[in-house]
């Protein structure tokens, strides 16, 4: 009987959502030029040039100026998603990092212990030895991901997660391995503090919180887009330390 009611409720929800599908434009059929995203893509958020808007709406798309390789395009990020996450909506990202911090803090409070939990399993020899080779490479790859966050797909959050994967590999390969909570906590706290300090510097120099006060350079260069790669490095190290601490909490017990 309960399953019947559950099916009815779920089907009602699905029906309600499907009836909303008439309102949203069809899949793959949207007109980007009529959305706000076009001004993010044109790097035209603070000026909202009427000329650019008209050009984007009209057919003269060929005459729109190049973005790649040019200078002074607001933040100078080649990756527009990073541009939104770390430049235009950076305050939101600060809140997001705080949410992740609170979750890690909660896990630490619930599961926290001071001793490594032993599972009594001896890992395979090949696994143990190959971990020693793999861990530096994984950490290097994570660092590559978050340093190139403004040029390629990825950024601080995926890069930090990859670094935490290296920590997880170490935990699985060695029964004795235990990351000290002081180190992950110190890295996490200092990186969060540096993020806020970067924001306050922007407040002092440019007049609003997290203002992009460094020169932006040419779009597509590694040294470009002002504080975006710096902030993404902070975020990457913070997320990596946070998730490593979370894995430490999951593998520890009291005693």
């Amino acid at each position: 009987m309960r399953r019947l009611y559950a099916i009815l409720i779920a089907a009602g929800f699905v029906y309600m959502m499907l009836s909303f599908l008439g309102v949203v434009p069809g899949y793959g059929n949207i007109d980007l030029c009529s959305r706000v995203s076009s001004s993010f893509l044109l790097k035209d958020v603070s000026e909202q040039n009427a000329k650019n808007w008209l050009m984007a709406k009209g057919l003269e798309t060929k005459s729109i100026e190049k973005v790649y390789g040019e200078k002074n395009k607001e933040d100078g990020c080649a990756n527009v998603v990073t541009s939104i996450v770390v430049n235009y909506r950076s305050f939101d990202t600060l809140g997001e990092v705080t949410v992740l911090f609170t979750a890690a803090l909660g896990v630490g409070l619930i599961l926290g212990g001071t001793r490594r939990k032993k599972y009594g399993l001896l890992p395979n020899f090949v696994f143990r030895e190959s971990t020693r080779i793999l861990v530096p490479l994984i950490i290097l790859f994570g660092a590559y991901i978050f340093v190139h966050g403004h040029l390629t797909p990825g950024g601080g959050f995926p890069g930090g997660t990859i670094i935490a994967a290296a920590a997880l590999l170490l935990y699985l390969a060695d029964e004795e391995f235990f990351l000290s909570k002081v180190s992950t906590g110190a890295l996490e706290g200092s990186m969060g503090g540096l993020y806020v300090i970067a924001g306050l510097l922007g407040l002092a120099i440019g007049g609003y919180f997290l203002y992009n006060f460094l020169p932006t350079g040419r779009v597509g260069n590694l040294i470009s887009s002002g504080i975006v790669p710096i902030v993404y490095t902070f975020i990457g190290l913070k997320v990596g330390a946070e998730l490593s601490g979370l894995i430490t909490d999951l593998h520890s017990e009291e005693g």
Binding site: I30, L32, C33, R35, V36, S37, S38, F40, L41, L42, A56, T61, I64, E65, K66, V67, Y68, G69, A78, N79, V80, V81, S83, I84, V85, R89, D92, T93, E96, V99, L100, L151, T152, P153, G155, F157, V219, G220
Partner: peptide, 30 residues
């Protein structure tokens, strides 16, 4: 939505919408 050598400027229909991707990045972390 990444500017590269092959796609140096904003053309109609060349890029997907970056804003939902940025919002979902937040949602995944949460």
């Amino acid at each position: 939505p990444i500017y590269t050598k092959a796609l140096p400027s904003f053309l109609k229909g060349a890029f997907v919408d970056p804003l939902p991707q940025a919002l979902v990045l937040t949602a995944i972390v949460i």
